[in-house]
Design a protein around this nucleic acid. Structure first.
Lengths: 122, 122
DNA sequence: TCCATATTTTTATATATATGGAATTATTGA
DNA sequence: TCAATAATTCCATATATATAAAAATATGGA
């Protein structure tokens, strides 16, 4: 991961509404949520939400797929994990015990197959 | 951690120069670095660096102690780890295996005693 | 006490970002 | 083909942020 990508991802998360959106998607799991449902839950005007989702998408933090009229947004866990790895990279000059950073491998990944109707737009 | 604190921390990191400063301090370890040395290594004007260090400090990502004429900045590893915990909180509705997030405990912490000359200003 | 060093604070200016109304595009079902 | 729904893009406005020159503060040594 490049420094510029990390700045983009951090900038995307550094906003109250977007952070809420992202955390909602992280908690929702790989199945994601339709934009309308996010807007409703967070009481955001649709152009506002659309703007924020685009930021998160360009930053590689969420993915989108169409399902009929709805666009389904989901957290991009790979993007998130890459970002966290970048922040802690080579911490304490390699002696991670100096700063309490998790040094273990990620939990074994369960692959979730998404409904494949519609076209993916990244 | 509150959402507002997370936004502050992410905003502090979402800037090219500050991200560089922070990563430099993360890699430098708990002993930290004097402001002048950071400015020199990153070729930043001192008021600019000072502004950025203040942002990181207010966001709880770095600490500062005085040593003679120098102010020594160090990464605040607790702050960083809290932030990452906040982002991944309750991911996949509790089934972390769904997204490959590290679920293990942080490495055992090695406490490093800092030189106690001067006053700590947070 | 005075000077040099290290760093911060103040201030001005330039630039980037957030918001929501209005118009637009895409999809489905009648 | 048309109306209804879901969401986006365009636009104007308000607000926040980054930068560095100049002035101010704190420390240590002569």
């Amino acid at each position: 991961m490049e420094s510029k990508d990390a700045v983009a991802a951090l900038g995307a998360l550094a906003q109250e509404n977007r952070l809420e959106v992202f955390r909602m998607l992280v908690q929702a799991g790989p199945r994601g949520l339709p934009a309308g449902q996010i807007a409703e839950r967070l009481k955001l005007a649709s152009p506002t939400l659309s703007f924020h989702l685009a930021q998160l998408r360009h930053a590689g933090l969420v993915t989108v797929t169409r399902d009929g009229r709805s666009l389904i947004y989901a957290a991009d866990y790979d993007g998130m994990n890459e970002l966290m790895g970048f922040l802690t990279e080579n911490c304490c000059a390699g002696d991670a015990a100096g700063c309490g950073v998790p040094v273990c491998e990620p939990a074994a990944r369960t692959v979730v197959r998404r409904r494949s109707r519609g076209v993916t737009r990244q």
